[in-house]
Design a protein around this nucleic acid. Structure first.
Length: 438
DNA sequence: TCTGGGGTCCTAGGACCC
DNA sequence: TCTGGGGTCCTAGGACCC
């Protein structure tokens, strides 16, 4: 059971004595005691594939990008995880640990569709559903838990529904805030349900290693360890002044995290902060210094970015170029324009200029990326938008490509474009268009 | 067959303006 | 007759998340 107490409020009854007696949740009256539910799908991409293809069930599988290209494990089934296969692992590494692993090329549209339907189900419990990634969400059920026999019952309903409807399992955490909900959800995987009550927080944090917290990565862990801080208990007691001296304004935040305090609200997906940038990057199948090939990749990336901007009525005025060399050293160069653009060809022009300024021949290029930031929405009618007589052409081309698939109509230079599906980024969010294959 | 892809936020230094 | 000082924008780089 949870610490959720259902009781009569005397004052409430006295005030509304003519109405039927109503059960009230004492917690919803206390502003600082929220009930946040975190749901994390177990091995999401891999589980979806195992559901679609029954012969994959019970087998160690790894979902990845184009197996012919340079790719990594995007998701491993629990059978593979038990052998040590992890997300972001290279294929040779995974095969070394688990020679019989079945590699499956990812199917983004399928994951987006499943995720969207799962999200829709979450909203039957509360409006306050925050999408954290394609397979994770926070639900603030402070005001609605009493309608469903408490948060634990909500979690059980979700688990039962996902199992029955999609054949998927998930891990859920219930806690007074997002930080702790995510932490508790991660504690028992797969198919777990963990509840952390406010009264248990101090004891839980006392011996918890700092790196278990979402937001403390390897670098921050190392810095904290050097200060003699290994556990959240130690972090929570550390003098704030010293933390801010080292981490800036983040120091205050870190101390509070150590104490298990997190006041950040669950932001429903329909109130998400506006998109700040849109971009694509691509690791070449083989390192190159062939300028024609580089130019073609940059054009393809620029066209993809332009199309996404237009699809969501965005335009941007800062173009960034990402260049990774064969030795993995990575450089970014950006340039801001006076006017806003959403045209792949213009993005490409700026990107090429940046590339020429940045590139040190004869180094071999491994990855190229293009992104556009400083975005605004619905700017077509204003003077700040770069005049483009090609607009009606774009509309037509976009329409055809929406109907018949990406690059059905494309510039002649892109006839040789790189084919093959790429696995979806887990950072996908609803509202964002489905990432497209290349 | 070493090391994907898509994002956000923060910092720090320099330019520029009033 | 040494060195003002804020605010904002721009760029590069780094950390973190999934």
């Amino acid at each position: 059971m949870t610490n959720l107490t259902i009781c009569h409020s005397e004052a409430f009854d006295a005030e509304e004595s003519s109405k039927p007696k109503t059960l009230r949740c004492t917690q919803s009256d206390k502003r600082d005691e929220r009930i946040v539910l975190h749901v994390d799908m177990d091995a999401f991409f891999a589980s979806v594939e195992q559901q679609t293809f029954p012969f994959l069930r019970g087998k160690p599988i790894g979902v990845c990008g184009d197996p012919d290209g340079r790719t990594v494990i995007a998701a491993a089934s629990y059978e593979a995880k038990r052998r040590g296969v992890k997300t972001a692992m290279t294929i040779p590494e995974a095969k070394k640990l688990c020679p019989e692993i079945v590699l499956v090329s990812g199917n983004p549209a399928k994951y987006v569709d499943t995720s969207t339907r799962i999200l829709a189900f979450y909203t039957t419990f509360t409006d306050l559903v925050e999408v954290f990634s394609i397979d994770e969400a926070f639900l603030d059920v402070t005001q609605t838990a009493h309608l469903f026999h408490g948060p634990e019952e909500i979690a059980r309903s979700i688990k039962a529904h996902l199992k029955a409807q999609f054949g998927l399992t998930c891990s859920a955490g219930i806690a007074p805030n997002k930080l702790l909900a995510k932490l508790s959800g991660d504690m028992h995987k797969p198919d777990g349900l963990t509840i952390v009550r406010q009264s248990e927080v101090a004891a839980l944090m006392e011996s918890l290693p700092v790196q278990e917290l979402c937001g403390i990565g390897p670098k921050t862990q190392e810095k904290l360890n050097r200060l003699g801080i290994k556990t959240c208990g130690e972090l929570g007691r550390y003098p704030e002044k010293q933390l801010t001296g080292i981490f800036g304004i983040n120091g205050t935040h870190l101390k509070r995290m150590g104490q298990g305090v997190d006041e950040s609200p669950v932001l429903p997906y329909f109130h998400e902060p506006a998109t700040k940038s849109m971009g694509h990057s691509f690791t070449l199948d083989k390192d190159t210094r062939d300028m024609a090939e580089i130019q073609r990749h940059l054009l393809q990336l620029s066209e993809q970015v332009g199309r996404r901007l237009r699809r969501d009525s965005f335009a941007g005025r800062t173009v960034s170029l990402v260049l990774r060399y064969a030795d993995f050293s990575t450089f970014i160069k950006q340039h801001s324009l006076k006017s806003y653009i959403d045209d792949g060809l213009r993005i490409h022009q700026v990107g090429m200029k940046l590339f020429e300024e940045l590139y040190q021949p004869p180094r071999l290029v491994r990855l190229l990326g293009i992104s556009v930031s400083n975005l605004v929405r619905d700017l077509k009618q204003t003077t700040a938008f770069e005049d483009s007589r090609a607009d009606s052409l774009f509309e037509t081309v976009d329409m055809v490509n929406n109907k018949y698939g990406e690059f059905s109509v494309a510039r002649a230079r892109l006839q040789e474009r790189t084919p093959g599906p790429r696995v979806i980024s887990p950072s996908w969010r609803p509202g964002a268009p489905t990432p497209v294959g290349r």
